[in-house]
């Protein structure tokens, strides 16, 4: 009960206590992202056709047909409905991103906590590994991992999510480790030790709740980046195959040849979807940053109206 209240209050804080640009960025970002999340959840009901559906009622769709009453966004060369694929693409994108953030948090946060709390050689080794991963060009890393993982798991959502996680884990690790290093010096940690708490208890009950607060910000900012990376992988023909799921990057790749032929709709809509979702997530991330980060936060102050002296 208390936990629920805490979560609700934490969610409400950004709205109740902020002002100006940060608030607007957050609101607009949340609206855009929210629309995509709704599309993702209700894709089977919203999308007029399936993502790999080339005919309806036994009649084939037109090949690269222009937008019409039947197919609002037109169809592509494989006879698929562009609008349906764009909507189903949102589902793929959101699935991959949520999964990869989950993996990042599950791996990166505990590693950062342990590394920051214990310090010493463990910390140094982990730092070295993570920095090495971080120093790699992230897209190259994603390509390598998706090659390896697609071999193991096939071109599934899980495989792609895992290869994306590999490039973002170092960021979570870094942030959590650094906040842990400073938080473990706090008196309340020493107080926990003074009541006889073990290291595990201190990390779980005293440090975790206080170092986790920066994760939502990196989470949303990384999500935006992950959408781009996912599309990039799809564009290169890696990762998810078009028959397994609709994926914007993959569709863009196929639309490449269309552009010269005057078929603009196959590229425009998936591209637009990427731009919108990335923008939305970035706005949420920056907005959260401004509201959660006390150094950037502008509190919404009520204007001071001094009463006349007689009123006192």
């Amino acid at each position: 009960m208390a936990a629920l209240r805490r979560v609700l209050r934490a969610l409400a804080t950004p709205f109740t206590q902020t002002a100006g640009l940060g608030r607007w960025m957050l609101v607009i970002g949340l609206v855009i992202t929210g629309i995509f999340v709704l599309l993702a959840i209700f894709a089977p009901w919203i999308a007029p056709y399936g993502f790999a559906q080339a005919s309806a009622d036994g009649v084939d769709f037109p090949k690269a047909g222009a937008p019409s009453g039947e197919h609002w966004f037109g169809t592509d060369r494989l006879l698929f409905d562009v609008m349906s694929r764009t909507i189903w693409g949102a589902r793929t994108a959101i699935e991959v991103v949520i999964l990869s953030i989950l993996i990042c948090v599950v791996i990166g946060v505990p590693l950062g906590l342990v590394s920051g709390y214990y310090g010493g050689w463990l910390d140094r080794v982990l730092l070295l590994v993570m920095d090495a991963l971080f120093a790699f060009p992230s897209f190259l890393l994603a390509i390598v991992f998706s090659f390896l993982l697609t071999d193991l798991f096939g071109g599934s959502v899980l495989a792609v999510a895992m290869s994306l996680s590999a490039i973002y884990i170092p960021q979570y690790y870094r942030v959590v480790r650094n906040t842990t290093v400073s938080a473990k010096e706090a008196t309340y940690v020493e107080a926990a030790r003074a009541i006889g708490a073990k290291d595990g208890v201190i990390m779980r009950r005293y440090l975790f709740g206080n170092v986790i607060q920066s994760v939502p910000v990196i989470g949303t900012l990384n999500a935006a980046d992950a959408i781009l990376t996912l599309a990039g992988l799809g564009f290169l023909g890696l990762g998810i195959q078009s028959t397994d799921a609709a994926e914007w990057g993959h569709d863009l790749n196929r639309a490449l040849a269309d552009a010269g032929a005057g078929v603009w709709w196959t590229g425009l809509y998936p591209g637009l979807a990427i731009v919108l979702l990335v923008t939305g997530l970035t706005l949420v991330g920056e907005g959260l940053n401004e509201t959660l980060n006390p150094t950037l936060r502008k509190r919404r102050l009520l204007p001071v109206v001094m009463t006349t002296r007689e009123d006192r």
Binding site: A2, A186, T187, Y188, E190, A191, A192, A194, I195, R205, Y206, G209, N210
Partner: peptide, 17 residues
């Protein structure tokens, strides 16, 4: 043996009731 700290604000975990 227990301890009482100087700064009560710092000695309590901000995320614990």
């Amino acid at each position: 043996i227990q301890m009482v700290f100087q700064d009560p604000s710092a000695a309590l975990n901000p995320s614990m009731t």
